[in-house]
Amino acid sequence: MTHQLEIKNLHASVGDQPILKGINLTIPRGELHAVMGPNGNGKSTLAKVIVGDPEYTVTEGEVLVDGQNILEMEPDERARLGVFLAFQYPVEIPGVTIANFLRLAMQARKEEGEEVTFTEFYGKLQSALKTLEWDESIVERYLNEGMSGGEKKRNEILQMLMLEPNYIIMDETDSGLDVDALRIVSHGVNSLRGPNLGGLIITHYQRLLDYIVPDKVHIIVDGRVVESGGPELAKRLDAEGYDWVKELATA
C-alpha cells in the first residue's frame, strides 16, 4: 500500500457553480505541501471537499487516502482513516468542554470494546499543552466558545496533537494570528512532523512557511494547480504577488 494522499482530477461545485476544475496532487506521508493562490480560487473548497463537507458536490475525480477512495465516506470515517482538517473558522460548541470532547474524539478512534485510559489521555494532554504553551485550565473551557481567533487556532492544533492524524489539512491557520501565536502553532505542527505525517498547508503568506517549511508548494488558480515547485516558489509569490500566476491560468 502506498502511504499517500492522492487527489486525482478533482472537480467540485457549490450548487451549480463549479469551483474545483480538475485538481491533481500527490502528497506522500512525510511531506507537507503548501497550497497558495489568490482568494476565491478553490483552496478552502479543496480542504472542505477532502474532509467531506456536504455543502460541496464532487462531480468528478477521486481522493485516495493510502489507496482508498474516501469520497463516498462520511466525514467521521475519513477522520478515523487519519485525515484532520484544522478549520479556518472553528465553530463554537457551547456546553461541551474541550477535555470531554478530546476524550470522545480519541475514543472514536478506538476499536469496539477498547477504552481510552486515563493515563493515555492525561499523558498526551500534558505533553500537547506543554508544546502549545497552554495552561491545563484551558481544557475546562467550552469548545471554542468565547475564544479569541488565536485561541481557536491553537485549539485546532491541540486537537491535532491529541488525535495524531496521518494527513493534516491546515486551512489558513495563520490568518488572524500574531507573531507569538504563529510561532506556537507552528511549533505544534512541527512537533508532529516525521515520516508518518503528510498534508496540505493552505495559506496566503510566506510568513507561516518561514516556520513550517514545506516540501513543495502548489499554486491554485481558478480551480486548478497552475504551478508547482519548491519552497522558493512561495518566496517568489511573496515578492512578486499573484499577477504572473493569474497569467499562467489564462495561458
Binding site: 462520511e74 467521521d76 477522520a79 457551547p94
Partner: peptide, 23 residues
C-alpha cells in the same frame, strides 16, 4: 461537520451538541 471531522458519528455529534445545550 466539525465534530464529525474529529471522528464522531453524526448521531454522536448531535447528541453531544444537545448535551452541551442542557449542560
Amino acid at each position: 461537520l466539525y465534530l464529525q471531522s474529529r471522528g464522531l458519528s453524526e448521531d454522536e455529534a448531535a447528541g453531544l451538541i444537545v448535551r452541551g445545550f442542557i449542560e
